[in-house]
Design a protein around this nucleic acid. Sequence first.
DNA 1: AACACGGGGGA
DNA 2: TCCCCAGTGTT
Length: 348
Amino acid sequence: MQPKSDRDLAGMVPALLGWFDRSARTLPWRSARGVARDPYRVWLSEIMLQQTTVPHAAPYFEAFTRRWPTVEALAAAADEEVMQAWAGLGYYARARNLLKCAREVSARGGFPVTEKELLTLPGIGPYTAGAIAALAFGERTPAVDGNAERVFSRLLATQEDWAAAKRRIGHIARDLVPASRPGDFAEALMDLGAGVCTPKQPSCGLCPITEYCAAYAEGRPDRYPIKPAKTARPVRYGAAYVLRRKSDVWLIRRPPSGLLGGMLALPSSEWAETRTASDPPVEAGWTSVGEVRHVFTHFALHLDVMVAEARREQLPEGYWAPAEDLAGLPTVFAKAASLAGLNARQRR
DNA sequence: AACACGGGGGA
DNA sequence: TCCCCAGTGTT
């Protein structure tokens, strides 16, 4: 069987939309069928879902919309409140940009309605601009996320370099967006990628568009997309310090940019490529209570967790927080606090 | 074009 | 383990 030419793909649009009408997922940020989507909820959900799974983002979406029901309410929130509410969701630059964006939007009286203008806002890149324009404003723009890239890679059985394939997919997707239902087309592609055209063992038996799929025709859809091999992840070592004073713990706020930027944290040593001598923030009777391991995107961290009772030292910048409520710590420090016997937010 | 940037879940 | 996820911003 011959792979379909790009032109043949046009037929997949009505087939996909028909399938979507029958089996769309119900999600917290989706409006009822036929009801206009709220730009604020579309935007907030799209930011939260960047590189983040639906089950992980969903409770955060509920909490944010309950606490800040409008973009104006979010714009008026204090930075620390928002960073604390985002804790555990990861990629904290998203939270910093979320606030910047909310304040810009609030100041200009609402979200811009075109892909081009949306692209100028902080935290909104090519994918998110297209998604918001299509979902909230009905513009004929594509929303090519990781799901859509995988679906198209299989439809086309892309052989070229993955970067080149993604460029080609972007153009093809843009041409296919139906003028009548751009938002539904975007959600349909996402639902198909998430539930049917999955990375491993895709359920081609449930797929409404196998007729258009070159990878299916080849019999090995799981071989696509063809991506470059990942490089190994190095390990870094360091120590985190839990300084106690009665029922309090000493916390710091990390610098506004970089890893975990702007987040609440335990004081810690530099993170080196080899185990190095302990480097506590103050002199005290430090004892180790064990090690926590945490995996970041581009390195793994082994953190020795040190505990001590405070004496009367001059402390560096920071403040005392109640040990029974350490909500708002990023996961790596929540793990460390937990190991030290403190009640930090910890899933699992 | 390559890298920095979290965290969790599935196979 | 390894891979992936509704990616963006910086260099």
